[in-house]
Design a protein around this nucleic acid. Structure first.
Length: 396
DNA sequence: TCTGGGGTCCTAGGACCC
DNA sequence: TCTGGGGTCCTAGGACCC
């Protein structure tokens, strides 16, 4: 028996954050809208630019001040993540009514398996057009769609005809399609890999296609080599196991920090943020990671795995501070601090009982604070040190 | 005008065990 | 006396993506 031809639909919301802002502010429609940091926020960047703003050369990750120079008439606004998440949910609901197999890839992207839905919705192209229409009519946003025999190809297909796009890679033409792509359009090849490819004399997908998998692996590493070898043939690369999970929070300071006290206060704030998020999702971790970026943008990380799980924000803070003390060069200004937890796992009831009483109480208090903050976002319950940022306590 | 924040995966080397 | 190999866990740094 022959395996049935698989079919995937990849959907990508067009300029998602900016489009939601235009939806909610009709007077902003057909105007350049830039969601992200405000132009006079030091060190802020653009998160999403509407298509009208892209005409001025504004794009994601561009410093907001630069965007302002390119497009002073633009409408600049901060992201409203809760609102975007709400719209995203509604989109996912629509997708769920077309297939039991919807993989959400990010807030504005999903992959829907259409294999076997023909009896209900007709050929994949018709299903895709129906979904696009339903999102347009029901929510008011446009989405770009790609159809192909693998998730990876569907993802590339959805990039081909943005915005409000539709692109299908007909079965049997996968390899020819990949060979026709410029290297920079191959998802997974970023700036550094492109440079490396050019340096090794590869300028088209054909150049990669000519070489053996062994050669590609020796030039670019095992994983990247195999990925390139398979990508230009239109073959799906190994399905990722998704075995580890991490949580982190980081802050870039408007002005570099130059003293440890300010740095430690920032670490405490970050520890609370990360611990609350870990409590909220009911998970735990033994591994603490610190990220430190100096004024010259050089970045270093340190991480340490302990025998036992982190039990409280205070403990997370203490562990992160130890890493900081080990790494920090006092002569240099600090541009960014981040802390995270790695190898995060779901709490089991059994592990829960292992918490000693004191830590259990701390955890309970932190849980209560977290719920209070959720109900009353205007209240910020924090250690006295975090309020006002004044030097009022002594610490060892 | 310098360069956000939150993730995932890969590599290479060291420690340690069998 | 030289010195095997595999496996796992951990760490630092990089690349990529949204």
């Amino acid at each position: 028996m022959e395996a049935p031809q698989k079919c995937f639909l990849h959907l990508d919301m067009d300029a998602f954050f900016a489009s939601v802002e235009q939806l909610d502010h009709p007077e902003w429609r057909r105007r350049p809208v830039i969601v992200g940091g405000m132009p006079d926020d030091r060190r802020s960047v653009v998160s999403t630019a509407s298509y009208e703003a892209r005409k001025f050369g504004v794009h994601s990750a561009m410093p907001a001040a630069q965007a302002y120079r390119l497009c002073p008439q633009g409408i600049y606004t901060r992201p409203r993540m809760a609102r975007y998440a709400e719209i995203s949910e509604r989109v996912m609901e629509i997708l769920g009514s077309y297939s039991p197999d919807v993989e959400r890839l990010s807030i504005d992207e999903a992959c829907v398996e259409l294999t076997g839905t023909e009896l209900l919705f007709g050929p994949p192209e018709r299903a895709a057009r129906r979904i696009k229409a339903e999102i347009k009519e029901g929510i008011g946003l446009t989405v770009s769609a790609g159809i192909a025999a693998t998730r990876y190809l569907a993802k590339i297909a959805s990039e081909m005809d943005k915005p409000d796009g539709f692109f299908q890679i007909p079965p049997g033409t996968e390899e020819a399609f990949m060979l026709s792509l410029p290297l920079e359009k191959i998802w997974g090849i970023g700036g550094r890999t492109l440079e490396k490819l050019h340096g090794a004399g590869f300028f088209t997908a054909h150049h990669i296609h000519e070489k053996s998998e062994e050669l590609l692996r020796s030039l670019f590493g095992n994983a990247a080599g195999t990925f390139l070898y398979r990508a230009v043939r239109g073959l799906e690369s190994g399905t990722r196991a998704r075995n580890s999970h991490s949580l982190s929070a980081e802050t870039t300071f408007p002005f570099d920090l130059t003293d440890s006290y300010a740095a430690e206060t920032a670490i405490m704030e970050l520890a609370y943020t990360v611990m609350f998020r870990m409590l909220r999702e009911g998970s735990q971790s033994r591994t603490v990671a610190l990220k430190l970026r100096y004024d010259d943008f050089s970045t270093l990380t340190a991480q340490e795995t302990a025998e036992s799980c982190i039990q409280s924000a205070d403990e997370l803070y203490a562990r992160a501070r130890r890493l900081f003390e080990r790494k920090y060069d006092k002569k240099r200004g600090i541009r960014l601090l981040g802390i995270g937890v790695d190898n995060v796992e779901t709490c089991s009831a059994e592990q829960e009982t292992l918490f000693d009483f004191g830590e259990k109480r701390k955890r309970a208090v932190e849980g209560a604070i977290m719920r209070l903050e959720e109900r009353h976002p205007e209240i910020k319950v924090r250690k006295a040190r975090l309020i006002g940022g004044r030097r009022t306590d002594k610490h060892s």
